[in-house]
Amino acid sequence: MTLVSDANLDTSPPSGSPPDPPPGGLSRRRKPPNRSAILVTAIMFVVSIYFLLPAYWLVVSSTKGPTSLYSSEGLWFSHFDLWKNLRGVFSYNGGIFVRWILNTVIYAGVGSFFATLLSALAGYALAKYRFKGRELVFGIILGGVLVPGTALALPLYLMMSKVHLTNSYWSVLLPSIVSPFGVYLARVYATSAVPDELLEAARVDGSGEGRTFFKISMRLMSPALVTIFLFQFVAIWNNFFLPLVMLSNEKLYPVTLGLYTWNNEYGQAPQLVSYVIIGAAISVIPLIIAFLSLQRFWRSGLAAGSLTF
């Protein structure tokens, strides 16, 4: 931490130079490098090695076949089998990997879309309407945030097996649509971002409540909605326990469960080791793209949510 204070000594201009324009949001003052900047950057560089090295290993290893994976130096390239691995991962077992990716996109995409919509509706209702029992309903939903999803998965399985819903798309999709945290975030955001006057004006103009919500309020809530969407998307994409419990048909697997299965099966087919590695690398790409392209939105939504928790 002393580094940071050093930074101050060097960077804050005691006199002379005109004060910087107030830095807004992300734009940051660029200063000529100095000792503390180098130190801070060096620290962050070292830390980033910790975060990036395993990912680097993943990329390097995805270019190796099963034999050179075991025999070559882990952190450097060896026999270049990337294309062979790519062909293999996409064609193994009738191209089931593609199906797993598609399943994951369906689970995560459809699931988080509806989760966002439902959370927005519910959060908006809780923020903008006063009715009896509102705080109680909100309290119960908030309680839901604190109940771990995996603790629910087992009871859900027991319940769904009674109605023969296990081992189906629905068994994974439907529970994923419920996001109590999404409702919380939507309510908090709607409270401050949707002015009552605007709603009143809409009513005076004769706009119906539903129309007002979809035409006006939702747009105002969009940073929060993007945040909810992305976090639910990641939550579903990462979810392993629910599909593990619910699904027994490989064709319904999301990519996480599929790769886990392969990882347990390479004793029967050694090339699966390479497919697991390259499959893992591939499955990460869509998520990273989603986060990068939408980061401006979700960060502001997140800030609002976390600051008022």
């Binding site: 193994y92 077992n93 009738g94 089931i96 199906r99 593990l244 048909n249 490989e250 064709k251 469960l257 886990y260 299965t261 347990n264 099966e265 390479y266 004793g267 029967q268 087919a269």
Partner: peptide, 25 residues
Amino acid sequence: MNSIVGKDHVRAPRPRKRKKIAVGG
């Protein structure tokens, strides 16, 4: 997810350890 290969939860006697040309194919 499979006990065939021995990472099963029970670690029970294994039926076999051969190629599992997995289910879809």
